[in-house]
Design a protein around this nucleic acid. Sequence first.
DNA 1: GATATTTGCAACCATTTAGTTCAAAACTCC
DNA 2: GGAGTTTTGAACTAAATGGTTGCAAATATC
Lengths: 204, 204
Amino acid sequence: MVANIAKPRGRPRSFDEMGAIEKATQVFWSKGYDGVTIDDLVAGMGVGRPSLYAVFGDKRAIFLRVLKAYAERKGALAAKALLAPQSLRDSIAGFLKYNVESATEKGSAWGCLLICVAPLVNDAEVQRFLQNAATGGAALLERRFRDGISAGEIPSDFPASARAIQVTDLARGLTMRAQIGTPRKTLLKDAEEAAELVLLPRRV
Amino acid sequence: MVANIAKPRGRPRSFDEMGAIEKATQVFWSKGYDGVTIDDLVAGMGVGRPSLYAVFGDKRAIFLRVLKAYAERKGALAAKALLAPQSLRDSIAGFLKYNVESATEKGSAWGCLLICVAPLVNDAEVQRFLQNAATGGAALLERRFRDGISAGEIPSDFPASARAIQVTDLARGLTMRAQIGTPRKTLLKDAEEAAELVLLPRRV
DNA sequence: GATATTTGCAACCATTTAGTTCAAAACTCC
DNA sequence: GGAGTTTTGAACTAAATGGTTGCAAATATC
């Protein structure tokens, strides 16, 4: 049984809530946060203005939902990529390259909602969310490193925790450089080299 | 002879052009780009609205001047820090820590104009400027690495160019993490570890 | 001291924007 | 089919915002 929801009483909605958030993601993706107006959202989401306020709330609330949906999808993709059966080196390089690719996708004026646009939204709840997303991402990477230790790909004294954070920082750097127009090709090469760097053994 | 500028004809200006840009920097620093209105600039710069348009132009033009002044100052500071007579390790760690400190300065809602706010300004000229500033910074770091090679602090096959870029990426990552509320103390420790990372010898 | 020249202040205009109101539409329940 | 309930579309309001204009004030040149 999928669900047993009684049909709501009044006039049915003409839009799909999830779909609307999906479309809103595209709007924020292509215009940043401050750049979008309510009219942009109305046009982009296919939801009437009063319905928009009634169902979703104001711009900030919509952005929060967008952010959560985006993070969930992106997190799932990253996790899948990291946990795929491949060498540690390929995992890390793949993670960084995935970042570069999604940040240089054409049509996305802003590379990454989580890395580029959300941090500039001065909002306590957004910040808290980003903080959690960041630590979550780092934890995922750290786990991958520890698996690598178990598999003997890296020495047992490998500083997994620090390196995990460094991978996220390098990813941020690559993404921000995509933002200022560094070509994809350059960034992909840099991602490759970054992966090599963070896998170096600790100094003797 | 400092200069031999004939006194201008009419009523003298009541503000200092450089000083006004300095104050504008504070405004953008504390409110981002989209966040500032012309009124904010009028209030913050101490320049009347019509004078502002006549002398400086619109918001975008003011931001460009601010950015250039900011980059010049920051670049000079970074260069001085990097070229100070100290170990390579201290140079790199100092560079990263300086980034963290300036990004976590209280009162500055936005950590760094060059790293955080400017990249999100969708403007070709801004982008070009950032690109140049970025390559300039990387070049400075690379030079420091090469000096380290000459001094025997790192092996002669040290990949100076790639590592220089990686330092800038790590700096970007640290700055963006400051942006989402990561405490200064954590970031300073991470900066230290990042410096250690980028100084590791190439894999044999 | 008169005149030319430039700045400064206040008010102004047009546009954009966020958020609300209200009646009509579309549906369920009885 | 009618009553009750919810959504929708269009219009509306109030506020903010970018940019301009006109006139008074201040200073150099003649």
